[in-house]
C-alpha cells in the first residue's frame, strides 16, 4: 500500500504541475504544448503503463486488505466511539479510495479517452478546449470537487501513513513528514480544485 501510494503521489506532482499551466491564462498555449509533449513522448508512454499498473496494484492491495480486515472481526461492536482515538478519514480510506476510483472513471472518460482517440487517428486535438467544454457544465464541476475533496482526505492520512508502513518513524523526521504531508495535500488539492472552478466562472479563458 505504502509503496504504490507513494508512487501514485509522485504522479500527482507531475500531473498538477502540468495542469497548472492553464493558470498562465494564455488561451491554453503553454498547457496544450505540455499536453502535446506528454501525449507523444515515448518515455511518457512507458511511464503511463507503469502508472496504470501501479494504480491497479494499489486497488488490488486495498481490496485484499479490506477483505482480510473484515474477516478479522466477524462480530461487530454495538457501540463504537472511534472519534475518541483516531481521525475519521484514517478510518475511511477504503470509502475515500472508492470515491476516488469513481471519480477517476469519469475523469479518464473526460480527458484520457478523447486524447487517445485523437493520437491513434493522428487528428489534431485541443485538450484545453476540451477542458473548457467539460468545465462549462456545473455537474462536472461538482463531480470534480467531490473527487478532489476525497483526494484531500485520502492524502492527509495516506502521505504520512506510507512512511510509517515502510518503517520510517523518527523523532527528528516524522514531524517534518507529517507537516509536509498536510501542506502537500492542501496545495495539490487546492490547485486541482481551482481548475474547474476558474474555468466555470470564466476567469481562465
Amino acid at each position: 500500500m505504502g509503496l504504490t501510494g507513494l508512487f501514485l503521489i509522485s504522479f500527482l506532482v507531475v500531473h498538477v504541475t502540468l495542469n497548472s499551466f492553464i493558470f498562465f491564462n494564455d488561451g491554453g498555449a503553454s498547457f496544450n504544448a505540455g499536453a502535446d509533449f506528454m501525449a507523444h513522448n515515448p518515455v511518457v508512454r512507458i511511464l503511463e503503463i507503469g502508472l496504470f499498473a501501479g494504480l491497479l496494484l494499489h486497488i488490488f492491495q486495498a481490496l485484499l486488505l479490506t477483505l482480510e480486515n473484515r474477516k478479522a472481526r466477524p462480530t461487530p461492536y454495538q457501540v463504537v466511539n472511534g472519534g475518541a482515538n483516531s481521525s475519521w478519514y484514517s478510518r475511511s480510506m477504503g470509502i475515500l479510495g472508492s470515491l476516488l476510483l469513481l471519480f477517476l472513471v469519469v475523469h479518464l472518460g473526460n480527458f484520457w479517452v478523447p486524447t487517445k482517440i485523437a493520437v491513434f487517428s493522428h487528428a489534431e486535438h485541443d485538450t484545453f478546449a476540451g477542458m473548457k467544454e467539460v468545465f462549462a457544465q456545473w455537474y462536472f464541476v461538482a463531480i470534480y470537487l467531490v473527487g478532489v475533496i476525497s483526494l484531500l482526505y485520502h492524502l492527509l492520512h495516506g502521505f504520512q501513513s506510507a512512511f510509517q508502513s515502510l518503517g520510517l518513524n523518527h523523532k527528528k523526521y516524522t514531524p517534518l513528514i507529517k507537516k509536509t504531508g498536510i501542506w502537500f495535500s492542501i496545495i495539490v488539492c487546492a490547485l486541482f480544485a481551482a481548475m474547474p472552478v476558474t474555468m466555470f466562472l470564466g476567469i481562465i479563458k
Binding site: 500500500m1 486488505l65 482480510e68 480486515n69 474477516k71 478479522a72 472481526r73 472511534g82 475518541a84 482515538n85 483516531s86 481521525s87 484514517s90 478510518r91 480510506m93 492520512h157 504520512q160 501513513s161 510509517q164 508502513s165
Partner: peptide, 13 residues
C-alpha cells in the same frame, strides 16, 4: 487471523 495495520493510531491512543 489478526487484521492488517492501516496506521489509524487507535491502538496507541
Amino acid at each position: 487471523g489478526f487484521g492488517n495495520c492501516t496506521n489509524t493510531g487507535a491502538c496507541e491512543a
